[in-house]
Design a protein around this nucleic acid. Sequence first.
DNA 1: CGTGTTTTTGACTTCAGTCAATTAAAGTGG
DNA 2: CCACTTTAATTGACTGAAGTCAAAAACACG
Lengths: 254, 254
Amino acid sequence: MGHQTIRNLHPLARKLRTLAPLDDYDEAAILDLPHTMRSLDASAYVVREGDEPTHCCLLVSGFAMRTKLVGDGGRQIVNFHISGDMVDLQNSMLGVADHNVQALTRIEAAFIPREAIVDIAFGRPAVGKALWIETLVEGAIQREWVANVGRRKSISRLAHLLCEFAYRLDAVGIGPECQYTLPMTQEQLADATGLTPVHVNRVLKTLDEMGLVQKLKGSVQIHDFAGLADIGDFRPTYLHLPPSVPEIHQRGNA
Amino acid sequence: MGHQTIRNLHPLARKLRTLAPLDDYDEAAILDLPHTMRSLDASAYVVREGDEPTHCCLLVSGFAMRTKLVGDGGRQIVNFHISGDMVDLQNSMLGVADHNVQALTRIEAAFIPREAIVDIAFGRPAVGKALWIETLVEGAIQREWVANVGRRKSISRLAHLLCEFAYRLDAVGIGPECQYTLPMTQEQLADATGLTPVHVNRVLKTLDEMGLVQKLKGSVQIHDFAGLADIGDFRPTYLHLPPSVPEIHQRGNA
DNA sequence: CGTGTTTTTGACTTCAGTCAATTAAAGTGG
DNA sequence: CCACTTTAATTGACTGAAGTCAAAAACACG
């Protein structure tokens, strides 16, 4: 594997560095992780419920989502993922996948053998700690989603989701301030918020009329971040981002 | 600390053993973890949102819950916890608590210094792996809760919750088959399912009329587990329990 | 262009929430 | 042990937020 290979895992190194202090050897070990690159088309499955994956999938570019299907045919999106996310630690470490991971857009992904992850985690405690923290942060996000879907009304749910996405994109350097890529369809937003597509459409219209946010095709323009965060009841603590990130959103009112 | 002390952490050893293979030294190291015992009354806080806990709380006996408060005063319970659960890995590892942990009943808890956890996790990879897996399983439960609250109707939500609780109690040996301790009030069930107490009351009545389950004070009697799992759309994969546990529920129809 | 998504809108329905009052338990202290 | 307070459960009547159904308009793309 040559110089090309080295760069593939850069998003992972970048992210883990923000989660726990890593030295140069740690970073080198991350970049050196064995892996195979694959690109997948939008809506392709990375893992399906019931699979027994042997590799961990790192999302290098593009967007992905985790989905669960319920009995009556409904679907719930339980999280979205962006560059640098280990999209499948859980499924590969737990043996059998309890949910689906799907590409949302076309993605580039690195598949890393599970053993290599375990080895680096315990061979290099700093890396292990970072991976563990990543797992914990994802848990924190899931908890916030439970609260979002369980206890907020539709307008807050959507506003909250848009705020979260803005912060997470900022943290990885995509999504320059107040206009950012939002590749989900309204149906997907509905599945993420526990609403129906029709209602998402109406709520989005309301948010627009309120002058808070404007949804364009494939992206979103936030006009008043503070206002959006307010009706979305959004406080970013649960994302456990490094202190630098939140500042970006101070200027939300363009 | 004498022989008494050794037994305190037994629930933890017991649980971690089911998550990853541990040798005798691993178990001894777990039982040897420094800790202080405390008992807390029902509804006392173990951690509050915003705290910066330095200790990890292990629930030795009793029941606890994680709660998040939303802007309009609503509360969402995002998980329940039972004996053997590390109720506060997330908050202590992530620095600042993004949610509350509260005793649901009177509890006995062991508070273990955060550094001791980190040391054992990386000094004894088998233990570390078990802890990591515990974190991942909790994430899996959170995802299922997102789907439960987001996409199931009220009767399924409650039925699902009751099934999950039955399985989790079985896994730690409390809750002998079909009658088990269910210490939550209807208000707490409502906060866990994203419903109102009034509606929970009505749904519980319906479940009773359907002959599936009967709620008594402080406990619940399941008359038809298969039927309950059916309307609850409950499949236990996401709990990632050892294969032995599920069998107990084969005899659900007493 | 034409075909297939995705978005948008309107009319109507329903599940669950709200309000309010009652009953039943569970403590508490004299 | 019993009045007294508090907390939890129950019930009914009414409301409302979000869902459903259905059709039209707007894109996206080969």
